[in-house]
């Protein structure tokens, strides 16, 4: 409340000051000394890209602060004005929280060119023993290769944390697959499972997404499921199983959006115009993640390197 008030006062003061300035520049940057708070999450691409955006703003003369936050609660904080900008909002895992926050006053600052996908995923060596595993029917045919002591004779699917809003047990039922979906508590657990299996060339099928650092470290492919349509979830007749709803996969091209506090436009007009133009492609995001995950740079260093490599892209945002 207090901060909002302070900002409001500040923005009024700056607009008055601007009105008084005779040589009417477009805008004197920065319009406010208050820091622009950029959200940071705990996955690589987001950390690099948030630094890239932050650096662009500080070079324009803005005070920038980074605050780490959780992927779900961040949107409420942005709606409240506690934080101001999020560079990566994923359709697959954040859609409902994002949309709820937009209702509460958060601003949808547009989508990136990049598309996202979250789906079952196998390392490529699996294809040696189960050549058709790139689609769900082929995978299901060799379900027993993925069995563990607890799930035997069914195969084991290592699923995402239960609160990521994906009910794979239901999908397994709807598609009548011979798999049992287990949930991990945290993404790191997925990767530990993957690393251990990968080193031993043990068959494994697990939840993964793109863009993600995993693709730069492990060779593998997504398993294709029936492309979803709205009817998949309402009409039992739709899809491979005529008797069940939910017999389809996740969208292969989900959106990746930016989220912003509604006050940015008034408080830092110039910054707002830049942020609206910020746009990443899949290749650019993968390159950013690669520098950290494979080359071992810190996110800050990667951001600088990325900016050097993509100077023309950034120039396009700033104009």
């Amino acid at each position: 409340m207090k901060r909002n008030l302070k900002l409001a006062v500040a923005s009024i003061a700056t607009s008055v000051a601007m009105a008084l300035t005779l040589n009417a520049h477009a805008a004197d940057v920065p319009e406010s000394d208050e820091p622009i708070i950029i959200v940071q999450n705990n996955w690589t691409s987001q950390l690099v890209l948030s630094n890239v955006v932050g650096n662009v703003l500080s070079e324009l003369g803005y005070e920038v602060e980074y605050v780490p936050s959780d992927s779900q609660l961040q949107f409420t904080a942005i709606a409240n004005g506690d934080m101001h900008f999020q560079v990566e909002a994923w359709e697959g895992s954040m859609k409902s929280a994002f949309e709820k926050a937009v209702e509460e006053g958060m601003v949808d600052a547009g989508a990136h060119e990049a598309v996202t996908r979250e789906e079952w995923w196998i390392p490529n060596y699996v294809l040696e023993t189960c050549p058709d595993a790139t689609n769900w029917e082929g995978l299901n045919a060799c379900a027993d290769q993925f069995a563990t002591a607890e799930t035997s004779p069914k195969g084991r699917f290592v699923g995402p944390p239960a609160d990521w809003g994906k009910n794979y047990a239901d999908r397994v039922n709807s598609l009548e697959m011979d798999f049992e979906a287990i949930n991990v508590g945290q993404a790191a657990t997925l990767w530990a499972e993957l690393q251990s299996a990968y080193d031993r060339k043990e068959p494994i099928v697990l939840f993964n997404w793109t863009p993600n650092f995993i693709e730069s470290k492990f060779e593998g492919t997504f398993v294709d499921f029936p492309e979803p349509a709205p009817e998949c979830f309402t009409d039992a007749a739709w899809g491979p199983n005529p008797n069940a709803t939910g017999d389809c996969g996740a969208p292969r091209g989900g959106w990746l959006k930016k989220a912003a506090w509604s006050g940015i436009a008034d408080t830092w007009p110039k910054a707002w115009s830049v942020l609206q133009r910020v746009n990443f492609s899949n290749a650019q995001i993968a390159a950013a993640a690669l520098m950290v995950d494979v080359d071992g740079m810190s996110p800050e260093e990667a951001a600088e390197q990325w900016a050097a490599d993509n100077a023309d892209v950034i120039a396009g945002w700033v104009e």
Partner: peptide
Amino acid sequence: ITALIGSRDLGQEIYRALPTA
């Protein structure tokens, strides 16, 4: 803390409650 591995116990309930407030 072991909730991060994945289980359905009370620890997991706490861990789940955090991101959803």
